[in-house]
């Protein structure tokens, strides 16, 4: 039986945390890893006992390896990767998993290189223990790949594609493991949260995005005013308006910018160029406001309003 064979694996999840809690993305990674078999959570940190205890309670976690040492205080990949390699040498996991976040993307490829394995990044679906689905070309081509040559599969999973494991229900034993030493090549200075009070584009619940139809830098103000009326709403833009200098390039949504998948994407005065669509078409609901009825954005929008944006946007703001 397929499922039985499937569950013979032994997976290690490299946990991302803030010294207090297991990150939500890591909870998704843990849930994804349960598809392979028993899950061991690796919690590295300094003063991170609370995290190890929390990880032990996560549903699906069968064991916790806790390494508490100064070199893991900020989870620098130069230090974490050799530790993962050491844990792997001792326990021979079939799969090593992390979330496809800034942390996972920094650590897993490093582990892969030193263990001579080709990693499988940004997995959106696990077909079986060696077959994985991942997007390429910013989601315009979906690739199914099979890893048969490498003895251990190293993957990062896209957190939004896997439910989070429950934070209760587990009762794993926590065991200590020796630290692997300080690489001494990089030093953490600070983590700075965005000061604007605006949510990050990639994690915002709603994104209001503007295109060439806005006509000028000054006119973007109406999008900011609309965004202020919507909780957890970020402002985005097309490459065309970034190139025109209307907004800075960190607002760019698209294949060469940020790929977003909010609950609601409001496309204002943008036609829907291919590379822009690639960055937002996985949004749950798409609404657009455009005065050109033939704009391609209408073909992907759940709700399309043909209107002059300079009238419609302030009106929309007044209704919220």
């Amino acid at each position: 039986m397929r499922t039985a064979r499937f569950l013979l694996g032994k997976a290690l999840v490299v946990v991302e945390h803030n010294n207090a809690k297991v990150s939500p993305a890591s909870l998704s990674a843990i849930n994804a890893a349960t598809k392979f078999g028993d899950v061991t959570a690796l919690v590295a940190g300094k003063g991170s006992k609370a995290v190890a205890d929390a990880a032990a309670k996560v549903n699906g976690v069968k064991a916790v390896i806790h390494v508490d040492s100064a070199e893991y205080a900020n989870l620098l990949p130069e230090n974490v990767a050799p530790l993962v390699q050491k844990v792997q040498a001792a326990q021979k996991f079939s799969h090593i998993v992390a979330a496809h976040t800034a942390f996972g993307k920094s650590v897993i490829p490093r582990v892969a290189a030193i263990t001579d394995v080709q990693p499988i990044p940004d997995v959106i679906k696990i077909v079986d223990e060696s077959t994985f689905v991942r997007p390429t070309y910013a989601g315009n081509a979906i690739s199914t790949v099979k890893s048969t040559k490498d003895p251990v599969k190293l993957l990062t999973v896209r957190p939004t594609n896997f439910d989070k494991a429950a934070e209760s229900g587990g009762s794993a034993a926590v065991s200590a493991f020796d630290a692997a030493g300080e690489a001494g090549t990089s030093k953490w200075i600070s983590d700075e949260k965005d000061e604007s009070g605006k949510p990050d584009l990639t994690s915002a619940r709603v994104v209001v995005s503007g295109g060439r139809g806005l006509k000028s830098k000054e006119n973007f103000k109406i999008l900011y005013e609309l965004a202020d009326k919507i909780p957890n709403c970020a402002v985005g833009a097309t490459r065309a308006v970034v190139d025109a200098g209307f907004v800075s390039n960190d607002l760019q949504v698209g294949q060469t910018g940020k790929v977003v998948a909010p609950q609601l994407y409001i496309a204002v005065g943008l036609s829907g160029a291919i590379q822009h669509l690639a960055g937002m078409k996985d949004s749950k609901v798409i609404a657009c406001i455009n005065n050109d009825p033939d704009a391609p954005i209408f073909t992907v929008s759940d709700y399309g309003l043909q209107a002059d944006l300079f009238e419609a946007v302030p009106k929309m703001k007044s209704l919220l």
Partner: peptide, 22 residues
């Protein structure tokens, strides 16, 4: 090291409705 089993187009998004007013 990886074998490509299949490459497919993503599911296409269907156009929804047009609304008349804000």
């Amino acid at each position: 090291r990886l074998q490509t089993v299949e490459v497919s187009e993503p599911p296409t998004r269907q156009a929804g409705v047009k609304v008349a007013t804000v």
